[in-house]
Design a protein around this nucleic acid. Sequence first.
DNA 1: ACAATTCATGCAAACGTTTACATGCACATT
DNA 2: AATGTGCATGTAAACGTTTGCATGAATTGT
Lengths: 366, 366
Amino acid sequence: MARRAKPANNATIIDVANLAGVSYATVSRVVNNKENVAPATRVRVLAAMEELGYQANLNARRLVSGRSYAIGLLVHNLMGPYIGEIMAGIDDVLATSNYELMLFTTHQRREREARYIDLMSSGMTDGLILILPRGLETYIRSLRQRHFPYVLVDHRGFEPTDLYVIAANWQGAYDATQHLLQLGHRRIGMITGVIDMDNARERVAGYQAALEAHQVHFDAELFVEGDYTQLSGVNGALKLLSLADPPTAIFASNDVMAFGVLEAAHACKLRVPQDLSLVGFDDVPMASWTQPRLTTVRQPLVEMGRLAAELLLRTLEDPEHQKQGIVVPAELFVRQSTAPANGGRGATVDVVNGAAAWAEAGSNVV
Amino acid sequence: MARRAKPANNATIIDVANLAGVSYATVSRVVNNKENVAPATRVRVLAAMEELGYQANLNARRLVSGRSYAIGLLVHNLMGPYIGEIMAGIDDVLATSNYELMLFTTHQRREREARYIDLMSSGMTDGLILILPRGLETYIRSLRQRHFPYVLVDHRGFEPTDLYVIAANWQGAYDATQHLLQLGHRRIGMITGVIDMDNARERVAGYQAALEAHQVHFDAELFVEGDYTQLSGVNGALKLLSLADPPTAIFASNDVMAFGVLEAAHACKLRVPQDLSLVGFDDVPMASWTQPRLTTVRQPLVEMGRLAAELLLRTLEDPEHQKQGIVVPAELFVRQSTAPANGGRGATVDVVNGAAAWAEAGSNVV
DNA sequence: ACAATTCATGCAAACGTTTACATGCACATT
DNA sequence: AATGTGCATGTAAACGTTTGCATGAATTGT
């Protein structure tokens, strides 16, 4: 029964040693740039390596060193710009290290949780970055119990020793809401994120705090829960706009939902920003490609990825290095989707027809 | 000098064997579900595994089996929706296998090429999926020489035996162009992709073939090269619209550039589709979120990722399995960004002011 | 000139598995 | 009762490295 075919390239450290006329220990020293190798020997070994096209077998190396030289990224799914940006930041940092990146998603079956944790702790990765996977708490519990290094993104964890990178969601939401208040808006709708995520709750709190600071009554009617998808933005906006006393501005907890609001407003024949002001969150690249360009709170996603990777790498070097999270600023970018409240509204809102129009126009979107 | 700390979880196959009172070979048989193990022994071993929380060391396994149970994805960079979609498809397939996914990017330094090829062939992955990395040809040459399994996405490779998954770019571009022709457009601008990529060239060829079929003269003036970024879409559109005899329709070689065209048109006070028709390519999710919704050629990116992963996995099972590429259909989705040519144009094009307006509006986009 | 030190190199063990082969026992066949 | 067959289990080698320790040569100090 043939052993699974290996890459044809088979030169081992012993082949090199034979060719160079030294022991394989010496070859190993050359390969790893250890000192105490005579210059003449070194060049001889190097030449032999070159001739044979020698490449150290990674798995043997991993076995003996007990390290995998890989870090894992655990996410719920890969859709949307959010993950991609963070991933780019992580990749930036890893490119300058000698770690590689493994990708794990949790969106398939629930049972995978256990499998992943096993894989990781059995030597597949040396550390993990978790970006809001489903079942976060379960993962964290297992990882902590195994003393496996990890860093959270966009969540503060459950213990004071949890390492994390998160944006100043509260402040960002506060600034966004205050911006709308200063433009004269008093009825400001909010479409939240998935409410059991730290980031979503913090944004809600910032929104409420700003209202309070300006002595504006918080109206639960103006508050709908979304799930960070465009569709939930459409539906949330439709719901808000169909209120007896609809909002003159909407704060969406991420840009993708804001795009949904834009679409709903269009379907209802409301102009943004003249008839409805809109603020998003994230500042994904697309936020400045829409008409109008989206006023939004920038969350430095690439930078957050970078920081998370750096934090993890540093923890791998020195497990005691830093035992606290990082909060990065979130900055409001005022673009074109917000304008002063115009007292009486230009167009009356016809949500029923709007929703119908939207449904019809959307019907060819498979 | 302390060996790098390993995961606390240290139970080996030998510990399990001792606890169960059998040899480690027997434990191995149980772990791998081999037959010829007495039922009673099996339960005893299973119990011991459970008690010790045993998890087979992956790297030892890899060393002896010569396989890594990982496949690699090699891409130029991670930005944009295109890669994310394909990646999601790959992930779908891998989730049902026992392979994991490693991510490699080539956008950093050129020198990484050699390093990556070494890593892969030294046991980091069992096979590779390449999505248009920089230096594709170099990679392919090395990989073929090492008989390392790989699958290309969006490129047909250089040898008849190269495995690939690509969309019917020619047909898609033909259909898009024909759609515009049937709407009465005669001056149809094209913004191409990076022209040394197979997909870009095929789309150009489809465009030209459609023009020819309708006896419309191909005007080199109407033809600008882009690079798949939104900015290149803006610039390409600005250039086309400033022609003495500007196009009444534009076909952009991907959606992201089409978004740029939308922006340029807006800056020039041209209405889409009344004053300018627009077709994109890809059908990324965002294409149906814009105003107007983008008419575009759908490239089934997720499906392409899935097919590529399946093809690779099958090749790993049976190296001789299939030695030819897969072409998936590309289908035109007519939405709202195209309309009949209206003979004389409503608004005259003022590109100079438009470009200025665009530059100013864009100035807060860092 | 001899002892002490430094340095280059080799030897062998260890990392944790998988698996070919050997062993021995129980049962069936003659 | 003797022989053959099949099955459960154990033994040991192999996978390709890294690295502590031993060895001997070369260099330094007195």
